[in-house]
């Protein structure tokens, strides 16, 4: 195994790539937001030891999102933040917050608890909702990032415009989430290139693996100029899971990119995730492929399976109808509506 270089190269083909690790946030979707403090501490320690630069923590939909609608977290935000902060020695602690699910007060409390990177999220055409919260993050002295959710729902130009708007609001990194796992590498390449041309801050890509494209899409993003890539240990995340962190680190290493992550230690962290966080391996099952094609939010997988099973309807039909209605994250109430209508047919 080739050891990673400890200094970033300046040549364009071997740029530094920052791996942002939302295992303890996006992974919550795979376990019904039930991660406990001991699990979080164990993984955060392992990720920190591996040199992963940012460890993101929270409810699956971020700060303040614990609810009957989206799912109740096992422990309050404050306990998650305190636990992970104590476990990190080198890594920065990240949080995710979408205006409408959380509020400015949640951001204030998170920064008080030691969050250093704050992602403010909005649906793909709604960057305007991030204005005040990005300003607040800057005012509090944390690093402000903006991400567009469900980014496949709008066009390339619109994504670039929205990202540029977020930079005007103070975002120090901007980018897109493939929340449904819908993209192919060429889609990612086109979008990241357009965003890179529109902004002068690092560009973020966050993939999901519904179509088995998460690592390939992340590589495409790096090649198109992205500087921050999200990846989760063992791919632990919503739906079919996220870009698998340890695999991505290995791929980037082979490509000559510097991540600052010790691969051996990242593999050990992934083992911790598998043994202590996950109740089953992240898998591209039939439902995952179908929901990725339908462009439905990956986090709907568990609630759709539960509702479809209880009502005796085909979960694929539920995903098809949710896709037709362009349901977005946060609209879990539509699952019940769709299941009810399908049952009556």
């Amino acid at each position: 195994m080739q050891a990673p270089s400890t200094t970033p190269s300046t040549s364009p083909s071997s740029r530094r790539v920052v791996i942002h690790d939302p295992t303890l946030r996006d992974g919550q979707h795979a376990v019904g937001h039930r991660l406990g403090a001991a699990q979080m501490a164990a993984y955060a320690r392992a990720a920190d030891a591996a040199g992963i630069p940012v460890v993101e923590v929270g409810h699956g939909n971020g700060l303040g999102a614990s609810s009957l609608q989206i799912g109740r977290a096992a422990i309050p935000d404050s306990v998650m933040l305190t636990t992970v902060r104590q476990a990190l020695t080198r890594a920065q602690m990240g949080v995710f917050m979408a205006p409408g699910w959380g509020t400015g007060d949640d951001i204030r409390r998170a920064v008080d608890h030691g969050a250093e990177v704050v992602r403010v999220a909005a649906h793909c055409t709604e960057a305007a909702v991030t204005e005040r919260h990005l300003g607040l993050v800057r005012e509090l002295g944390a690093q402000a990032q903006a991400v567009l959710l469900m980014s496949h729902m709008t066009g390339v130009e619109q994504l670039a415009v929205q990202c540029a708007q977020a930079v005007c609001f103070g975002a120090q990194a901007v980018g897109i989430m493939d929340s449904a796992g819908h993209y192919l590498p060429a889609d990612v390449c086109e979008r990241i290139a357009a965003i890179c041309a529109a902004v002068d801050v690092p560009v973020i890509f966050h993939g999901h693996n519904n179509l088995s494209m998460a690592v390939a899409n992340s590589v495409a993003a790096v090649q198109a100029g992205a500087g921050v890539i999200d990846a989760c240990a063992r791919g632990f995340g919503a739906g079919a899971g996220n870009t698998q962190l340890e695999a991505l680190v290995a791929v980037l290493e082979r490509m000559g990119h510097w991540t600052g992550i010790d691969l051996r230690a990242a593999l050990a962290a992934a083992d911790v995730a598998e043994q202590q966080l996950m109740d089953r391996p992240a898998a591209i099952d039939s439902v995952a492929v179908f929901s990725g094609l339908a462009g439905v939010f990956s986090g709907f997988k568990r609630p759709v399976l539960a509702a479809a099973d209880a009502a005796g309807v085909d979960p694929l039909e539920v995903f098809a109808e949710l896709g037709r209605r362009q349901a977005v994250a946060g609209q879990e109430d539509l699952i019940g509506v769709v299941v009810g209508e399908l049952r009556q047919r």
Binding site: A65, S67, T125, R325, Q326, V328
Partner: peptide, 21 residues
């Protein structure tokens, strides 16, 4: 958060979505 554990009497939570659909 505590409501599910019987501690949140009268607690009110509001979430707001804007959809691009």
């Amino acid at each position: 958060h505590g409501a599910g554990h019987g501690a949140g009497h009268g607690v009110v939570k509001v979430l707001a979505n804007l959809t691009p659909a």
